[in-house]
Write a protein that binds this DNA or RNA. Structure first.
Lengths: 148, 148
DNA sequence: GTTCATTGCGCAATAA
DNA sequence: CTTATTGCGCAATGAA
């Protein structure tokens, strides 16, 4: 007699489209309608669930739909992860760029500041009160005075 | 005539331990040892594969082990994704910090440069050629020229 | 209620 | 051989 139910999934390896020859039945003694079986009425709605009408036409269809959705969802998920990873790389690069720029600006600033200092010193050295008096013999000047 | 195969997974929802009443057998006519059966010896190793000795003790054990491994692997994977996402956030913050710093440095530079210009103008205005002629007009030089 | 999207889980193939 | 990964289907659940 028939056999072995292809296990449900059994997708041997890669291709398993309509390979399933005879698959069906399940010793499930399901009393059609658990709800309408005994003397119970079914007013609002509250039954467990007909587990799953296997081998049902509509069942198979829903499964297939879901399988598709699942595949789609997973693809997205994977892609998103990839994108995120790439984002990390981009941000890292950007960071390096920014740090380089900072380094450069800092250097420029430092140079300008040094110029200022030097100039200030020159002024102090060459200071010559417009009106005669006062100390007027400043040191010839000083070079390479660096403060910070 | 029993079939049933619990479908393999059938983990109805959350608990499905020994729910399966009569499940077993499989019309698998497997000759014990495919390798040692005929007149074939088993020197190196190269046989297809006894599909899967369902309901085998050792089988069940291997499955369980694998399920565990799978769970572990997936947990890691998920965690890694999370970490990556967080990395993105950290890098973004860092980026903002750096950009802010750049803005500040740029401002400082700009101020210093303006000071220079102003000073240069002052010099030019007060310039008083000590000895009559002589080119003494310093090139005003560039104003707020920032490359890059 | 239905449909699609997500998610945890087990299976099996295969990589390590 | 063992574990780690990966693709896949199932079912429960969430969201529209």
């Amino acid at each position: 007699m028939n056999r072995t139910i292809p296990n449900g999934k059994s997708h041997a390896s890669s291709a398993l489209p309509a390979a399933v020859a005879g698959l069906q039945q399940v010793p499930q003694l399901i009393p059609a309608h658990p709800t309408s079986a005994g003397g119970k009425a079914l007013p609002p709605s509250k039954m467990k669930k007909p587990p799953a009408d296997k081998d049902s036409e509509e069942y198979r269809q829903r499964r297939e739909r879901n399988n598709l959705a699942v595949k789609k969802s997973r693809m997205r998920s994977k892609q998103k992860a990839l994108d995120t990873q790439q984002r990390v790389n981009e941000l890292k690069e950007e960071n390096e760029r920014l740090e380089a720029k900072i380094k450069l600006l800092s250097k420029e600033l430092s140079v300008l500041k040094d110029l200022f200092l030097e100039h200030a010193h020159n002024l102090a050295d060459n200071v010559q009160p417009p009106a005669g008096a006062g100390g007027s013999s400043p040191a010839p000047n000083s070079t390479s005075a660096n403060g910070q």
